[in-house]
Simulated assay, not measured.
Amino acid sequence: MTQDLKRTPLYFLHVQAGARLTDFAGWHMPLSYGSQLDEHRAVRAKVGMFDVSHMRVIDVQGSQAKPFLQRLLANDVARLRTVGRAQYSCMLNRRGGVLDDLLVYFFASDEWRLVVNAANAQDDLEWMRSVAADENFDVALTMREELAIIAVQGPQAPRVLWQARPAWKAAAGELKRFTATFVDEVVMVARTGYTGEDGYEIILPASLAAALWNDLAQAGVAPCGLAARDTLRLEAGLNLHGQDMDDSVLPSQAGLSWTVNLDDPARRFIGREALEQAGEQALAFVGLRLLDRGVMRSGAAVQTASGRGVVTSGTLSPTLGVSIAMARVPRAVSVGDAVQVEVRGKWMPAEVVQMPFVRSGTAAGSDNPAT
């Protein structure tokens, strides 16, 4: 592992805990602390915490912040009318490709916050600055590198977070999903996450991160690494930029048409013209469930009655006990169809299924907890 990788404020705690570290987007990040399966199951059944400080916070301020974001993002921030509301959106290039997917938080007409992916952060900031400069938007864009982010996820997340930080409960205890608030001047608590479970993402100064991490551990929260985060997000049907989509993929080709708001014809967001010209695409994004023993992986070929496709993300689901995947396939393919997936040089049967695969610890379409 190279020595020039970046370190989060919690790096030394991960080392002390014996975490297996990996290079992720140029950062030293914990892959797991022992058993990936145990970490995954802790989040589904109880509660786990993730260091996601490699993701970057970009604050957008100024008198034209709102129109700037309406131009920049495919979703429409005008729909955020309540202070603290969050929205998931794609940021597109002029060809309609997904430069990044991100969360945007509304705090005032001239005060917004974005959380972007680590691998794209610098390019994102440069793109935003170029749009602001070229189109004369009066905005200030600040990457808040002094901040850390800890995600606390799982059905017991509210209980343990207020146990670790009881003083925050008065401000954040009644937060609804996709809402955020500042519990003091420097700590933001958001009821968001990337696991398909209830939980919070806490954005706070790096100087406060280790104490919160340790207090959460004392409250019984299991530290979890990137490996569990990946299987959790895949079970939840959540995309990973750079794998399920990139700047050459249109939102509709990644199952993200719902994040594109075309309601206002006057809102000419970047990429809109390309999307309108593209019309209905030949490719669709679907979930797959393997019907044989094996594991579908990214890049695996998919054979359908309508032609070939490709797996974008695949894994062995710890919750369901079978291999699941997300795939880009011909648009004619639909839920219930039988397909074949190439696994280690062998064609294996699979079926097209509805996503998410797991919702709040339960197999989608089932009334019983998934085990």
Rank of each mutant, 00 (worst) to 15 (best):
S248K: 12
G237H: 04
W258I: 13
A119N: 12
T362H: 09
M348H: 01
D134Y: 01
L288I: 04
Q156G: 05
V116K: 11
A25C: 13
V139A: 03
G196F: 13
V83G: 06
G173T: 06
F24L: 13
A301C: 03
M188K: 11
F106N: 04
M296T: 02
R85E: 15
K169Q: 13
L125R: 03
G154C: 06
A45M: 07
S366V: 06
M355S: 05
V186H: 11
D247I: 08
A190I: 04
P251E: 15
D51E: 14
I150C: 09
A211T: 00
R297Y: 04
E351F: 00
M29Y: 03
P369K: 07
T231A: 12
A219L: 01
L102P: 10
A219S: 10
Q61V: 06
A157D: 01
L21V: 00
V249L: 13
T192N: 15
R267P: 10
Q61S: 09
M128S: 06
A254G: 14
S360N: 08
W168S: 02
L102K: 07
A254T: 12
M348A: 08
D23M: 07
D124I: 09
L283R: 09
C90F: 14
T315L: 05
L232Q: 14
A338M: 07
T231E: 12
L92A: 06
T319N: 05
N214E: 13
F178I: 12
G242Y: 15
R191C: 08
G237S: 10
L114E: 09
R233N: 09
G97F: 08
Q277I: 10
R56S: 11
E197R: 11
L208D: 02
G365N: 02
V358Q: 03
V115M: 14
R79W: 13
P318D: 04
Q156S: 06
I149M: 10
A86S: 15
D292H: 07
V98L: 15
G18H: 00
H28W: 05
R229G: 13
L147I: 03
G365E: 03
R56F: 03
V15Y: 00
Q70K: 08
L10V: 07
V353M: 03
I324D: 05
I202F: 04
R268C: 08
I202K: 01
A74F: 12
E126M: 00
A118W: 10
A364S: 14
V57I: 10
